[in-house]
Simulated scan of single mutants.
Amino acid sequence: MPTYDYQCDACGHEMELFQGINDPVKKKCPECGKLKLRRLFGSGAAIVFKGSGFYQTDYRSDSYKKAAKADNKPSESKSDSGKGDAKASKKSKGKD
Rank of each mutant, 00 (worst) to 15 (best):
G33N: 03
L37V: 11
A10W: 01
Y59C: 11
H13M: 08
A46R: 10
P24G: 08
P2F: 00
G33R: 02
A68Y: 07
M1R: 12
S43A: 11
G42F: 01
S81F: 08
F18G: 06
A10L: 00
D5F: 10
K27I: 13
G44H: 11
G84N: 03
K50I: 12
L40K: 14
E14H: 09
E16Q: 15
K34G: 05
G94C: 02
G42Y: 00
M15G: 05
E76V: 14
R39M: 15
K83H: 08
G82E: 12
P74L: 06
F18M: 12
D80L: 15
H13Y: 13
A67L: 12
S77H: 04
K90G: 07
A45I: 07
G51I: 09
G20M: 06
P74D: 03
K28W: 00
K65W: 01
P24Q: 07
K95V: 11
G33K: 01
A68K: 15
S92A: 14
E76D: 10
I21Y: 05
D96K: 15
L17R: 08
L17S: 08
Q19Y: 00
K26F: 07
A10H: 13
C8F: 08
F41A: 13
G94P: 00
K90H: 06
D96N: 12
S43F: 09
S89Y: 06
D62M: 04
H13S: 08
S81H: 09
K26P: 05
R38T: 03
R60C: 07
D9K: 15
K36I: 01
G20N: 10
P24A: 14
A67C: 03
R60N: 08
N72A: 15
D96P: 01
D96G: 11
G42Q: 02
Q7F: 01
G53F: 07
Y6W: 03
S77D: 08
M15E: 14
D71C: 01
I21A: 14
G12Q: 08
D71S: 10
G53Y: 06
R60A: 14
D62S: 05
